[in-house]
């Protein structure tokens, strides 16, 4: 695999999400909050959401994490407004398909399709999974999430 196979992972679009993340910070009023932590690699983030009739109305996050985790969390916030748990689970399944390389693009993912290159980097997939796992945990009323096995 040449270098061209990797640099898209660190393309300007994602670096910009890392530099200036969307929906960064706290919500004035949050219905749920979950803390995502991959202790082995040192990625941490906190996602707060506000819901209306089971649908996400507002989203905010803060992270001390790598570009991959931060950019996914930033893009995710824009993507999930209006979604309920069932829609989130479909989103998570589609995201999993592109991470594992069984699908190149999924319409439901929008800008999250940018992470399809992670199919070539199994060791970094857990970084990409962490924000969505944390959001699903918050929706389910859980307070912690991790995407590290064991």
């Amino acid at each position: 695999m040449g270098q061209s196979g990797v640099l898209p992972l660190y393309r300007e679009q994602l670096l910009e999400h890392n530099r200036v993340p969307h929906r960064w910070g706290d919500l004035d009023v949050a219905d749920a909050c979950a803390h995502g932590r991959n202790a082995l690699c040192g990625d941490e983030l906190r996602i707060e959401i506000c819901c209306n009739s089971g649908r996400i109305r507002d989203y905010a996050f803060e992270a001390e994490a790598c570009v991959i985790t931060t950019a996914v969390a930033s893009i995710l916030g824009d993507r999930v407004i209006g979604m309920d748990m069932a829609a989130l689970e479909l989103l998570q399944k589609a995201f999993e398909r592109i991470l594992c390389g069984s699908s190149g693009q999924e319409p439901v993912l929008g800008e999250l399709n940018a992470f399809a290159e992670l199919a070539q980097f199994p060791a970094r997939r857990k970084c990409a999974r962490l924000p969505l796992a944390t959001l699903v945990a918050a929706m389910a009323g859980q307070h912690v999430a991790t995407t590290e096995e064991g």
Binding site: V6, Y10, A39, C41, G42, D43, A65, C66, I68
Partner: peptide, 28 residues
């Protein structure tokens, strides 16, 4: 710069280093 991003970018340049907690959480 997060350690993992550095390690991935170094790897692309042929440089193998380790990133993470190095099995030493109390030290981190």
């Amino acid at each position: 710069a997060h350690a993992h991003d550095l390690a991935t970018l170094l790897d692309l340049e042929g440089v193998a280093v380790r990133s993470g907690h190095h099995c030493a959480h109390p030290l981190m």
